[in-house]
Amino acid sequence: MNAGTGIKVIVTMIGLDGHTTGAETVSMILRDAGIEVVYLGCNQTPEMIVDAAVQEDVDIIGISSHAANYDQVIQVVNLLRAKNIGDIPVICGGNIPRSRFGSLKGSGIAEIFPPGSSSEAIVGYIVNNARKAYAAPIPEALRAS
């Protein structure tokens, strides 16, 4: 039930994609797995998402895409890398045609969850692949003397 304890996720849409039902459903599925979801809703730009990722210090970013906005999705990956936080995986869900999977993954999208994906598959992927900052050892310099 709480396999995702300690993991913080952004769930968002990009641009004019206003199909919120999927993102809100996934947010609740993740919530029920013990994950903390920062829900950004719609009308986000890639810059806004990356800005939020820095300030919220999230471990993985989930983008719901129902508007064929693949260039913007890939832009999120590129901006994360440019900001030296490319270790935050970006995953996608939505009505993305399978013919696009190869090019998206080739551009750095970690995983894609098409319609019909199970809750277990999404949660399982996040638990196993989220940036493990939350579990990382404490730097020696900060240990109490």
Partner: peptide, 18 residues
Amino acid sequence: YSGGAVLGDRLRMKEHSC
């Protein structure tokens, strides 16, 4: 129940992104 959360405050503060 799960310890998870849906944090929806930032959603209302979009105008200050970036």
